[in-house]
Deep mutational scan, measured.
Amino acid sequence: MSRVPSPPPPAEMSSGPVAESWCYTQIKVVKFSYMWTINNFSFCREEMGEVIKSSTFSSGANDKLKWCLRVNPKGLDEESKDYLSLYLLLVSCPKSEVRAKFKFSILNAKGEETKAMESQRAYRFVQGKDWGFKKFIRRDFLLDEANGLLPDDKLTLFCEVSVVQDSVNISGQNTMNMVKVPECRLADELGGLWENSRFTDCCLCVAGQEFQAHKAILAARSPVFSAMFEHEMEESKKNRVEINDVEPEVFKEMMCFIYTGKAPNLDKMADDLLAAADKYALERLKVMCEDALCSNLSVENAAEILILADLHSADQLKTQAVDFINYHASDVLETSGWKSMVVSHPHLVAEAYRSLASAQCPFLGPPRKRLKQS
């Protein structure tokens, strides 16, 4: 649940008159999402009104509101027999009622949201009550392989729920002597030191190019640089560091992050930047690179990204790559990247197969709970 924001200063709310007192009302909304995959969808019983329910879910471990999704594969009634019906059901509720908006969509073979439908307002739910769409999607369109909505005969539904909580009022009075504290510009100011090479005390040599930097900042941000300058190493004695395995453009992006906490060109060089972040123990930059690479996972590059993640101990990226390969196994196994990995990294192939087997055979063990970014 997000923290209630402070109200904007009255002088910034309007260029008009300023009242002596004010009130700011925040209506709290808890948002969460749920993904439900139905394997072997074409084998569902086709009687009209037949119901399939998901397991229950909530916004978190401490949330007492429990929900589930309900599907009628062949419609709810005679009117909707040519459609799939989809509903959000409130299973248990400690209150007399709650209000919530919802959005349903289908994830296609690429994991993209399609055929989205959402409620136009927050509906009133009581325990045992459901709301949804009797005519969510035509069955003939859903079952047509050309539309790519049932890869490997799996129907994957994605649901986003927004639950309306209580409202909170914050009130106060205006004073004539309003003090406005300026925003912190530390990142910009440190970035200026790097860009202008002011007050530098060490030189970093990268592929024949020299960059002036500040030992204190490098040591504070990177345990690797800290070790170089702290001990009686040649880098500490000469205040000069030779860097041979990072390209200059990648190095500059890494230094921008060290000084400012930002990497504006990360998406263009996420793979190389991940390697640099791993070498210099820049954990936050490493996770930022993992996130960017996750966003660009595809059938063509899944094997290469899995190898990269394994090489640099990028655990979150590795998990996402394995899950992606499992979901698109029939396509990924035909790529040149996968065939190369079979020869060069057989242990990763074995890991992917083990994960695929456990996903398809849940009876082999208890269900695993899916539970950071600093």
Rank of each mutant, 00 (worst) to 15 (best):
L364D: 14
L186G: 02
D323Q: 15
S330Q: 13
N169H: 05
E210D: 10
C202L: 14
W194F: 03
R3F: 12
K279E: 03
N147L: 05
V332G: 00
K74R: 11
G192W: 05
V250T: 06
R139P: 13
V51H: 05
K215T: 01
F104M: 15
E145V: 07
I217A: 12
E79F: 07
F158Q: 14
S226H: 04
Y353A: 13
E50G: 01
A122Y: 13
F136Q: 11
D140G: 06
D271R: 05
T156E: 14
E47H: 02
S6F: 11
L306G: 00
M176A: 03
R99H: 08
D188H: 07
A292K: 11
E47G: 06
A122V: 05
I307L: 02
N40E: 03
F229N: 14
E183M: 02
D310H: 07
H214A: 08
C23A: 05
I305V: 03
K154L: 11
C205I: 13
A292Y: 05
Y280T: 10
V168E: 02
I325D: 00
K268I: 10
V322S: 04
K31M: 05
N301I: 06
S58N: 15
A270T: 07
E78S: 13
L285V: 04
S330L: 06
P248K: 11
A61K: 08
G148D: 05
C203F: 12
S295R: 12
V322L: 02
L155M: 08
D310E: 02
A270R: 02
S15P: 06
M1L: 00
V206G: 15
E334Q: 07
R185I: 04
C159L: 13
K81T: 12
V168S: 08
L86H: 10
V224S: 15
L348V: 04
L317S: 03
D291Q: 09
S42C: 07
V299E: 02
P8E: 04
E97F: 11
Q209K: 12
M341H: 01
D323C: 12
L190I: 08
S14H: 10
E351D: 04
M35Y: 08
V30A: 04
A281G: 04
G132A: 00
K372N: 05
L308R: 05
R70W: 13
F43C: 04
I217K: 00
F43L: 02
V287W: 07
V98N: 10
L218E: 01
K215L: 03
T200G: 14
K279M: 04
D140W: 06
I137H: 10
S33D: 13
V30G: 09
E50D: 02
L89M: 08
L90T: 14
F324T: 10
A207I: 10
T37W: 03
A329P: 10
S340R: 07
